[in-house]
Amino acid sequence: MDKAADEERAMYKVSGITKNFSDNQILKGVSLEIEPNKTTVLIGPSGSGKTTLLRCINLLEIPDGGVVEVGGLSYEFGRGRKPKIDDPRLREIRSRTGMVFQNFQLFPHWTVLENIMKGPVTVLKREKEQCRKEALELLVKVGLSDKKDAYPYELSGGQQQRIAIARALAMKPELLLFDEPTSALDPELEAEVLNIIRQLVEEKRTIVIVTHKMSFAKEIADKIVFFDQGMIVKEGSYEEVENCGNQRITQFLNMIKN
């Protein structure tokens, strides 16, 4: 793959995304450019639509309107028939993004190693032995080499989430999405997951993360996006967002500090 193609593929952008659930408009025309090799942190009150936006970015949720672009690929919604979740073009976009869920969602009937290898082997149709080797390397990276043959139910929440991160990384995604990756974890298990994410941030991967942990957000964010009632209210560096003088933001930050 040549460099130009590489750079082009790193571009990720959504524009004018709308999403309704029955009569409620949850996303009201959201546009966001996700900067390559940077970490974007999405914050905002509960129910504001952060999860929905993240799910629209990797098309687990089909937007009602707007455009999703990744590299050369773009998909416009709201014109003509609504695509099915199984649409090959959406799958292509999805296979290029990694999603880490709040509640891990490992495949319970497969071992840790099988969980990680599944995507590359089944979706990317890559050679099994090579995938196995890479999966083992990913296990070293998340510090769980000794668990390769364990089943998910034998792992702690923190360990499960680290495996879920490895599973996402196995697809060599151009964009990594995290939805409150530690909010289902006990505080003492949180650190091990945050450390892995820190490492990914240092590797200059393209990341979008939703979190309520403001200290962590401040530490890792190249850009903070404050989201409220289905709209982006403010985006910028942490200081810019904190000091922008918007009442709702000040309120939210004060509330969350306590």
Binding site: R91, R94, G98, L106, K118, V123
Partner: peptide
Amino acid sequence: EAGYAIGM
């Protein structure tokens, strides 16, 4: 969703 998320 976990299956779809890895592109299955």
